[in-house]
Amino acid sequence: MQNPDLQALITTLQMAGLTTVILLILGTPLAWYLAKMTSRFKVVIEAVVALPLVLPPTVLGFYLLIAFSPEYLPGQLWQQATGQQLAFSFSAIVIGSVLYSLPFVVQPLQKAFEQLGDNLLEAGAVLGAGPFDRFFHIVLPLTKASFITAASLGFAHTVGEFGVILMIGGNIPGETRVLSIALFDHVEAFDYAKAHLLAISLLISSMILLSAVYLINLPKKHRNVNSVGADK
């Protein structure tokens, strides 16, 4: 029989890992679009993206719970497509995490793209590089640090999620029982020894991850991009 806390750890890593991958795939074009956008609607989209920063997680969780239930369209469509209920599933907590951690990935990327500007991209274009070529050989190498930051923050924030998961995932071992929920369980059961163990390991691993992020961003911070590529 597997240690339930170890199982919760595995579920947590799976959820956070998958969420981070999805966020990078969806967040990069969204951040690019926002960085290049000049329309007035930009602020509206930015506000929507930033909403999870200020909204109580339970509010988001509550609406997602309703949307994911078989009585409503998203839940219905999911059930038709997969044959399984969406609410209280691993998929539900991944979707919830993607929405909840969206600003942590989109905002650093958007800022990096804005800072990079168009100068070097124009230079690339007149040298014969197409849009994807420019992205992979100019944008990506020059914003690498921001991508690492975005991925780390997205991952860490997803690991630390509680309210949304409690609302839409419940507490199913091996499916939706993640570390933060397991910790809550131990406290409820007055098993403070196990609670301490989980709490301190979450604290230390988050600390290490964040230190690594700040370390990556510390030394050169694209200083060079501005001195060579800046206009006038």
Partner: peptide, 30 residues
Amino acid sequence: LKSEQRGVGLVFQNSRLFPHLSVMKNLNFA
């Protein structure tokens, strides 16, 4: 026609070299 298809080169006032590449790699890029 997009810039990359025009066969027109442009040297900017502020060279706009790729800061993540060496001189050689900037030349190789082209």
